[in-house]
């Protein structure tokens, strides 16, 4: 018995150790759930890998966690959407060479019954005020992601102190965009989503877009190389090649070409030369 177990152990270790070794060059990118789950990376990365031979391994988490992975030096590039936090990340010396890549927008989704009467509105602050006044159920990400931080700023713009809100209509889900949408769909609640995740989300049930088009719903994505002087393990040359490709005409065209049901998800807006 023991000998057989040891034999099997050796075999199993060989089986796992084998493929991990002979790898082609790769970089690790900490990014957001919105870029991964919307299918953008699956559309974008094969073209980059085919051109350069560099594989890209994406760890998809919230923006806050992605930046912390970068701070610890556990990835080579971060690709996130919270400009204020990104600039702080660079100012603190954790990242260099930030470039803006693309944008899309946030949308307020909610149930068809729409108890706070928001459908068709274009003023997001007024919509948030109406939700609070009606005490209509609202599901918040509550996970310190880019979307979560944007939502908190919108409550502020509406003049509502969300921390002081009692009454139980404001639910803090503490999870990613998808689970939050699942929860909103299940309880007929309002929530703020990035458009990319919304368009690729399959379990909408009675949810639909109610408010969109406000300037304050603008959602900018940026890409930053983790500072190799802080973390010598960072693959600076490979990471820079990825960033340069993203903001190149070819990368920008690939981003613009990604659609779901004929609708474009992300709009390239890299500044030339930045």
């Amino acid at each position: 018995m023991t000998r057989r177990i040891l034999c099997l152990l050796a075999l199993a270790l060989l089986a796992t150790a084998g493929p991990a070794r002979a790898d082609s060059p790769f970089i690790t990118v900490a990014s957001t759930t919105s870029t991964e789950q919307s299918g953008l990376f699956a559309h974008l990365l094969p073209a980059f890998t085919a051109k350069t031979g560099i594989a890209v391994r994406v760890v998809a988490v919230g923006t806050g966690q992605a930046l912390r992975i970068g701070e610890r030096g556990d990835c080579d590039v971060v690709f996130v959407h919270d400009k204020a936090a990104e600039l702080k990340f660079v100012a603190d010396g954790f990242g260099i060479g930030r470039r803006e890549v693309m944008y899309n927008d946030f949308v307020l989704v909610g149930p068809k019954i729409d108890s706070a009467k928001l459908a068709g509105g274009r003023d997001i602050a007024a919509a948030f005020s109406a939700i609070a006044a009606a005490k209509a159920p609202f599901v918040s990400r509550g996970d310190d992601s880019g979307t979560d931080r944007a939502e908190k700023r919108l409550w502020q713009a509406a003049g509502i102190d969300i921390k002081a809100v009692g009454g139980g209509w404001y639910r803090d889900a503490g999870s990613g965009m998808g689970p939050t949408l699942n929860m909103a769909a299940a309880m007929d609640a309002y929530t703020l989503s990035d458009r990319g995740t919304w368009l690729s989300f399959r379990n909408r049930r009675d949810l639909e877009i109610l408010v969109e088009g406000d300037k304050r719903l603008f959602n900018q994505y940026g890409v930053i190389l983790v500072n190799p002087q802080k973390h010598p393990n960072v693959k600076a040359a490979l990471g820079r090649a990825f960033i340069d490709w993203l903001v190149s005409p070819e990368g920008q065209q690939r981003i613009a070409a990604y659609t779901i049901d004929g609708e474009q998800l992300f709009f390239p807006n890299a500044s030339p030369g930045g």
Partner: peptide, 15 residues
């Protein structure tokens, strides 16, 4: 392969 490796490793030490 991940779970079997983990169990064999844990068994080799743990048993």
């Amino acid at each position: 392969s991940v779970s079997l490796s983990a169990v064999f490793l844990a068994s080799a030490l743990g048993m």
